[in-house]
Nucleic acid binder design. Sequence first.
DNA 1: ATTACTTATTGTAATTCGTACAATATTTGT
DNA 2: ACAAATATTGTACGAATTACAATAAGTAAT
Lengths: 231, 231
Amino acid sequence: MLYKIELTDFFTSAFSVDCMIFGYEEGQLKVLLIERGVEPFNHYWAIPGDLVYPNEDLPDAASRILLELTGLADVPMHQSKSFGAPNRHPQGRVITISYFALIRISDFEIKASSWAEKAMWVAVNDVPQLAFDHNLILESTYEILKQKLNADPICFDLLPEKFTLMELQQLYEYAFNTTLDKANFRKKLKSIPLIQLNESQQNVKHRPAKLFKYDASAYSSEKHDSFQFNL
Amino acid sequence: MLYKIELTDFFTSAFSVDCMIFGYEEGQLKVLLIERGVEPFNHYWAIPGDLVYPNEDLPDAASRILLELTGLADVPMHQSKSFGAPNRHPQGRVITISYFALIRISDFEIKASSWAEKAMWVAVNDVPQLAFDHNLILESTYEILKQKLNADPICFDLLPEKFTLMELQQLYEYAFNTTLDKANFRKKLKSIPLIQLNESQQNVKHRPAKLFKYDASAYSSEKHDSFQFNL
DNA sequence: ATTACTTATTGTAATTCGTACAATATTTGT
DNA sequence: ACAAATATTGTACGAATTACAATAAGTAAT
């Protein structure tokens, strides 16, 4: 640098959090978007997010902002990545820390408020051009989600509490854009604690499938070596 | 909030990057630390890191700061996690984005400069109390490193260019604190493009092992399905 | 040169896991 | 009762994993 920078020159930035909320509905993975009602990017669709208060912790900010913009409360979020290109925000230097969560769409009611004009679930494969660098954030966070889907049994956060094995399989087929063998998929599930209920699918024109529940407490009481050494 | 916050109230924060540089030497995984020569936390050991210039991109800042403090240049870094507790920095609100890299210790010369009094390689299992929340950052980044070691062939960034299979095995045994069967370890390596050289270990009091090289270009020209579906 | 010693490297057998199908079972609707 | 549709289970084969054992190839002392 050619001139001396004072410490106070550094304290001229802001940061935001962006909350990518994933849900699964009608056989599609969807993400919750809002329509902005303020400048910049007025009337653009965007990932719900806003500036963090100067004294607010990041997870608290994520919860507050998600609630203010979309009405969603009590959604446990995970940190994703941070984005800090100098010109990503037209009003100044703003770094954003992105968070994500998986929820059951039917368990929540979304309601746009504050400066969000609308809130809507959009299929991840059908997302329009978004405000700021939000398309980049979305792509990047979707990759992280897929990694997690592969490593941890978080798929059950997306499905209804009672689900058929076929629904579970279709979620994976959709997320990874692949097809899986029914019989072999079920063999893989042997390692997961699923409880078969005495209930069946309703209103189908053929043999109904049994409904299952995921036994989260049984899973967490097992040991799960993360070490697999795949190279 | 009980009072109105102006937009300018948000632009009162700063952010930093912290660079966790991992190396492997004498059978130990080590991390590069500096001794601070400034307040706050004067004379504490710390992860090399500093405030980002208001117009600087994050990866550029990481490279600049690592060079200024430790003399390391041309080290490709990956983003780790971000830390933003409101009181993590005593002089104001500072969010830090942590980066990490793996290097061959012998390929670089470290030289403390700027406000770094010293720079030193420290075994990850022998790290003292650090400045700020750097112990937390270190633990968290070490976990991410282990994940990556398991998923990608990045172990070769830590080893010398020519290595024995036993050295490779010991790196994994050390990183994951486990023991592995020699014969079975080698079978796993069948899926990795290794080139056996016409050279052997030197100066050992027993049968010397053959030296190998990793063929990075062969690996990158192969297909590597990330989808494994472990649940 | 011969031999003991130490570690490198390869081999084997039993078992489990992954994969591609095929077969059977159970419900709906005619 | 029977066809239609999907659920669920089974089988067979090869690949991968695991726990050992056996062999090979150097060093160092006799």
